[in-house]
Computed example of a mutant assay.
Amino acid sequence: MPHLLFICSKNQWRSPTAELLFKNHAFHQARSAGTSDKARIRISQKLIDWADVIFFMERRHKDITAKRLNLTCKKQVILDIEDNYQFNDPELIGILKLALTDFL
């Protein structure tokens, strides 16, 4: 079962919304984390090691993570979803479903 990791800044709106899309999914497990010191769940090497595919909401999240942790040998995807949405925002869900069609 492939493990999907979603990363944004504070792990409050975008990445938890993406994680929720995969709750009880038949083929994937998902988790989420944030790059900020104030993140609800902060990104760690343990989460990176757990993941098969890492989705970054913005390029800066990848850059921050790459400076702190080892991302080698991990499939990485930048979704280019700006911080303009609240948790479970219907527009955000639509954007995520479109971007993650191959996984849902």
Score class of each variant (00 low, 15 high):
A30L: 09
A30I: 07
A30C: 08
R31W: 11
S32Y: 05
S32I: 08
S32M: 06
A33L: 06
A33H: 06
A33E: 05
A33T: 07
A33R: 05
A33M: 07
T35K: 03
T35L: 04
T35W: 02
T35D: 03
T35Q: 04
S36R: 03
S36V: 02
D37G: 15
D37K: 14
K38N: 15
K38L: 14
A39Q: 10
A39M: 10
A39S: 15
R40N: 10
R40L: 09
R42H: 13
I43S: 09
I43F: 01
I43C: 14
I43P: 00
I43W: 00
Q45I: 05
Q45C: 03
K46P: 00
K46H: 14
K46D: 15
K46Y: 07
I48V: 15
D49C: 00
D49Y: 00
D49G: 00
D49W: 00
A51L: 10
A51R: 10
A51D: 12
A51M: 10
A51K: 10
D52F: 12
V53M: 01
V53F: 05
I54P: 11
F55V: 08
F55A: 08
F55T: 09
F55C: 08
F56M: 06
M57G: 01
E58G: 01
E58C: 00
E58W: 01
R59V: 08
R60I: 10
R60Q: 11
R60T: 04
H61E: 02
H61V: 01
H61C: 02
K62L: 15
K62F: 14
D63W: 01
D63N: 13
D63R: 07
I64F: 09
I64D: 12
I64A: 13
I64C: 04
T65D: 03
T65Q: 02
T65W: 02
